[in-house]
């Protein structure tokens, strides 16, 4: 995955591209913030700071692009696969929790993640049950945070 020169180029410019596109978007959206009729004439208004930040991000991003062009700053390639697997797992967890409930979704996620990172499955399962119990005691009882109940209608 580090072999392709095109990918290397993309990686080198990704930071500058991120800031420039974000900056330009911010400027465009800031200019569309509606004006109020009762705003004081001395108030620079709600759009001023966002527009200024958008401009700073654009200029700073361009400067980063210039640096990348001159020095071609390299970042080491990543095990991106692991990254996407973990990110996907977390998204699935957050999507599922409201309907599945905290206890069941957490046991599933923790068992999977700990096993994926290298522990035996039964150990992961024990660990998962322990974590759910701990969170339930701390948050549910002590901190009075209502955790999502879900399908099983468990008390947590």
């Amino acid at each position: 995955m580090s072999g392709s020169p095109l990918l290397d180029k993309l990686r080198a410019y990704s930071l500058s591209g991120f800031f420039v596109s974000l900056g330009i978007t911010a400027i465009i959206l800031a200019l569309r913030i509606p004006k109020t009729g009762f705003q004081s004439e001395y108030d620079p208004g709600p759009a001023a700071v966002p527009a200024l930040m958008g401009l700073s991000l654009t200029l700073g991003g361009l400067y980063q692009g210039l640096l990348a062009w001159r020095h071609s700053e390299t970042t080491s390639p990543l095990h991106l696969k692991a990254f996407w697997i973990l990110a996907g797992g977390l998204v699935a967890y957050a999507v599922a929790m409201p309907s599945v409930g905290f206890a069941l979704s957490t046991v599933t996620l923790v068992t999977w993640m700990a096993t994926w990172l290298g522990s035996r499955w039964w150990m992961s399962l024990l660990f998962a049950l322990g974590i759910v119990l701990l969170v339930q005691i701390l948050f549910g009882q002590l901190f009075k945070v209502p955790l999502p109940q879900g399908v099983l209608g468990l008390p947590f």
Partner: peptide, 24 residues
């Protein structure tokens, strides 16, 4: 392979549980 299978299993389990509506 084991962990991959487990990952897939967990994910399917989540999907299934999401599909079931909570009892009213």
């Amino acid at each position: 392979a084991m962990s991959k299978a487990l990952a897939l299993f967990s994910f399917l389990q989540l999907c299934w549980l999401t599909a079931c509506a909570p009892p009213q």
